[in-house]
Computed example of a mutant assay.
Amino acid sequence: MTAEERRGPIEGVDSLLAALADPTRRELLDLLASRGEASATTLAEHLPISRQAILKHLAVLDSAGLVSRARVRREVRYAVRPAALDATARWMAALAADWDRRLAEVKRIAEAAEREQG
């Protein structure tokens, strides 16, 4: 894996991970995933925070590419955009595989050194 791939082949990985670091935003994503789509008002009915706070969290999720918004008459509805999560999961899996290869090499070297001493 190249240094560029380790830094993050997907655009905006830092903002995506920062968005996911907040438990309220993760709960909003869970609610949206279970409902399909919902307005900020509907989401606020399920969380102990104001509609305005919900809107601020949704703005962070939107800018990270985790939710989309669509106007339906006078209401704005939000929905999960799984593509950003899928790309991040693939990046993290590639990073984990790279570390697994490195650790296996360290183990191989340590075992060879142990055999030589033994």
Rank of each mutant, 00 (worst) to 15 (best):
W91C: 01
M92R: 13
E45A: 10
L43W: 04
A40T: 05
L16D: 02
A18C: 10
R102M: 11
A112M: 09
L103P: 01
R77F: 11
A44F: 00
I49L: 12
E75W: 08
A110K: 14
A94N: 10
P48E: 11
A44K: 00
V80F: 05
D98S: 12
A87W: 07
L29F: 05
R115H: 08
A18T: 15
A94I: 03
E105F: 04
A112L: 13
P23C: 09
V67M: 07
S15K: 15
L32M: 04
L17M: 15
E27W: 07
I109W: 14
V72G: 04
R26T: 06
R51T: 02
A38D: 03
R81T: 03
A87K: 04
V106F: 14
L17I: 13
E27K: 15
A18Q: 14
V60G: 03
L103A: 05
S50H: 04
R115W: 10
S39Q: 04
L55N: 13
R77A: 07
S63P: 06
R90V: 09
A53I: 01
T41K: 13
A64V: 00
L66A: 11
R51L: 00
A83E: 10
A112Y: 05
L17W: 13
V72E: 12
R69Q: 15
R51W: 00
D62N: 12
A70C: 09
P82R: 09
L55R: 14
H57I: 05
E116T: 05
A40Y: 03
V72W: 10
A83M: 06
H46V: 07
H57V: 02
